[in-house]
C-alpha cells in the first residue's frame, strides 16, 4: 500500500475521513475494522495490515479503491 493511501486509510479507520467503496466486501471490512479501532485504538496498525492484505488479495478491484482513497 502506498504511503498516502495508508495514511488516509488510517484516518478512515479512525473515523476522520469517509470513504464508501463500490465493493461490498471492502465496505464490510472497513466497518468491521472501524469498530475494532474504536474499541481498541492501539489496534490501528494491525487493522492497516489487514486492510493491506485484503487489497493485495484483490489487486484488480483494489486499484480503483486505492486511487479513490489517495484522492480524498
Amino acid at each position: 500500500m502506498e504511503a498516502v493511501v495508508q495514511e488516509k486509510m488510517k484516518r478512515i479507520l479512525q473515523g476522520d475521513l469517509k470513504y464508501t467503496s463500490a465493493n461490498l466486501a471492502f465496505n464490510m471490512l472497513i466497518s468491521k475494522l472501524q469498530k475494532r479501532v474504536q474499541a481498541d485504538p492501539g489496534s490501528i496498525e494491525l487493522c492497516i495490515r489487514e486492510m493491506d492484505a485484503f487489497l493485495a488479495k484483490y489487486p484488480i478491484v483494489a486499484k480503483v479503491d486505492a486511487a479513490n482513497i489517495a484522492a480524498l
Binding site: Y19, T20, S21, N27, M28, S31
Partner: peptide, 12 residues
C-alpha cells in the same frame, strides 16, 4: 414488520 432492520456497513 415488512420493513427490515438495517445495519449500515460503511454505506452498504
Amino acid at each position: 414488520p415488512s420493513m427490515p432492520l438495517v445495519s449500515d456497513h460503511n454505506g452498504s
